[in-house]
Amino acid sequence: MRLALMALLAWHDYRAEVRLSACAVLALVAVLAPLLVLFGLKFGLVTTLTERLERDPAVREVVPMGGGRFSAQAIAELATRPEVAFVVPRTRQIAATADLYPDSAAQALTVEMIPTAAGDPLVAPALLLQAPDQVLLSQRAAEKLGVQGGDVLSAAFGRQVAGRQEYQRTRLRVQGVLPLAAFQRDALFAPLALLEAAEDYRDGLAWPGHEPQANTARVYPGFRLYAADLDGVERLRRYFAERGLEVATQADAIAQVRSLSRNLTLVFWIIASLALAGAFAAMTASALAAVERKRRALSVLRLLGFSTGALVAFVVLQALYTGVFGLLLAWGLYGMAETGLNRLFAPAAGEFACRLLPSHYLLALLLTLFCCLLAAASGGWRAARIEASEGLRDV
Score class of each variant (00 low, 15 high):
105 A>G: 14
13 D>N: 15
26 L>W: 12
160 Q>F: 04
19 R>V: 15
303 L>N: 13
318 Q>F: 14
328 L>G: 04
332 G>D: 00
214 A>H: 05
165 Q>E: 05
143 E>P: 09
317 L>A: 15
1 M>G: 13
189 F>M: 11
164 R>S: 03
17 E>N: 13
364 A>T: 03
18 V>H: 10
104 S>E: 14
28 L>T: 09
169 R>Y: 11
250 Q>H: 14
369 L>N: 05
294 K>E: 11
311 L>D: 02
355 R>L: 13
378 S>A: 15
6 M>E: 11
276 L>K: 01
387 E>F: 07
122 L>R: 15
272 A>G: 08
196 E>T: 05
95 A>P: 05
314 F>R: 01
366 L>Y: 05
375 A>E: 12
366 L>Q: 12
90 R>W: 01
151 D>K: 00
159 R>S: 03
301 L>Y: 11
152 V>C: 02
176 G>H: 09
354 C>A: 14
277 A>F: 15
155 A>D: 01
246 E>N: 12
91 T>F: 02
218 R>V: 05
50 T>W: 06
60 R>I: 10
1 M>L: 08
37 V>L: 10
350 G>L: 06
54 E>Y: 13
327 L>S: 02
61 E>G: 09
168 Q>V: 14
114 I>F: 10
175 Q>F: 07
340 G>D: 08
156 A>L: 13
325 F>I: 08
95 A>N: 12
382 R>P: 01
210 H>E: 12
229 D>I: 03
103 D>I: 01
283 M>A: 15
36 L>Y: 04
342 N>K: 07
9 L>H: 07
140 R>T: 12
69 R>E: 09
112 E>S: 15
256 Q>C: 03
108 A>F: 00
92 R>T: 14
105 A>D: 15
392 L>R: 11
350 G>W: 04
246 E>Q: 14
328 L>A: 09
326 G>H: 06
262 R>I: 03
97 T>F: 14
98 A>C: 11
83 E>K: 01
202 R>W: 05
138 S>T: 14
83 E>S: 03
171 R>G: 08
370 F>L: 15
98 A>W: 04
107 Q>K: 14
355 R>P: 04
360 H>V: 01
79 A>N: 03
7 A>G: 01
156 A>N: 09
261 S>G: 02
229 D>N: 15
281 A>M: 13
109 L>G: 08
191 P>G: 04
379 G>K: 10
321 Y>N: 03
260 L>N: 01
32 L>N: 02
299 S>L: 11
259 S>F: 07
56 D>S: 14
377 A>M: 13
224 R>E: 08
371 C>R: 03
227 A>R: 00
347 P>T: 07
170 T>P: 00
210 H>R: 07
